[in-house]
């Protein structure tokens, strides 16, 4: 029973961060209609920013959120405005080619980081990296618990933005009917790069939060892009609420897979769920939650 509860707790804590990563990708998917295949790589860059601040200036990872999040937000703005939107103006190029551009962006980011930091594994070991506290017999990792709380705060802030502000409503309206949004006076191009910025900022925050408990190397982006994609499929493309369920489901599935089937199954679990959802619940959790 304790093992079960322990697994449940680790899965949930991890799931909170996965939700943030997934929401970032699904927002971009909803508004631009493309999969951002550089999503995990944006996170990787954020992790290197956090690592550098820690290794060279002794900045605590939680403090470095104040640097990494705005930096990756700006990088996201730039990518959408300067690299992706121009592709839409060229009539001979299919919109799908934006996806290929994101693949290229991801590769460039990975190689730049490899050039600067080499392929060596890096880690940020803070005083609290491996500290835990207990509730009954169940241990809670201190950093992952704090991460989980921050993830909830960020998600709540994002939903407030999307529901309560004109800009947030314009983001949702553009995702639902771009032409109608333009008729309402929405500058849909501006919305695309703000959305890309926000999606990138979310995954950047997740990266910075993960680094005290994770290793870092340039190729870490790819696996996280894949996880984000699985979460989006689980949640239903473009659904932020669905992505929360998708993230938590993936976190739990990985935790239970690792505990009961063995560590080596952790990554396969995600893909198995992915296939099961495509087969039995096409459309994902959005089919159930409706938003």
């Amino acid at each position: 029973m304790d093992l079960f509860l322990q697994t449940l707790v680790s899965g949930l804590l991890k799931g909170g961060l996965y939700a943030v990563i997934g929401i970032g990708m699904t927002l971009i998917m909803g508004v631009m209609g493309i999969i951002n295949l550089a999503h995990g790589q944006m996170m990787m860059v954020s992790m290197y920013i956090t690592y550098s601040l820690f290794a060279y200036a002794g900045v605590d990872p939680y403090v470095s959120l104040l640097v990494s999040v705005p930096a990756i937000f700006t990088l996201g703005l730039f990518i959408q405005q300067r690299l992706l939107n121009p592709l839409l103006r060229a009539e001979t190029i299919l919109p799908e080619n934006q996806v290929l551009m994101t693949v290229g962006v991801g590769m460039v980011l990975t190689e730049i980081m490899r050039f600067i930091f080499t392929s060596d594994y890096k880690s940020v070991r803070t005083s609290y990296s491996s500290s835990t506290f207990f509730v009954g017999n169940i241990s809670f990792s201190v950093p992952l618990t704090i991460d989980f709380l921050i993830a909830i705060l960020m998600t709540a802030a994002l939903f407030l933005f999307l529901i309560k502000t004109d800009l947030g409503r314009s983001v949702r309206a553009t995702a639902q009917d771009k032409e109608a949004a333009v008729l309402m006076g929405v500058d849909s191009e501006r919305i695309t790069y703000i959305t890309f910025g926000i999606g990138s900022a979310l995954v950047a925050a997740a990266g910075t939060l993960l680094i005290p408990v994770f290793y870092l190397y340039p190729d870490i982006g790819g696996p996280f892009t894949r996880k984000a994609f699985v979460i989006c499929i689980l949640g239903g493309l473009g659904s932020a609420v669905g992505a929360i369920f998708g993230g938590v489901t993936l976190g739990l599935a990985e935790a239970f897979g690792a505990t009961y089937a063995g560590m080596e199954f952790e990554d396969i679990i995600g893909l198995v769920i992915f296939l099961l959802v495509l087969l039995f619940l096409p459309g994902g959790f959005k089919r159930i939650t409706k938003v």
Binding site: D166, R169, S170, R172, A173, Q176, D177, A180, A181, M184, G185, V186, V291
Partner: peptide, 16 residues
């Protein structure tokens, strides 16, 4: 209409 938004949100979108 923005079908997933409420009637009121649709009206708000008209007044940007």
């Amino acid at each position: 209409l923005f079908t997933e938004m409420t009637v009121e949100e649709n009206l708000i979108m008209g007044s940007l």
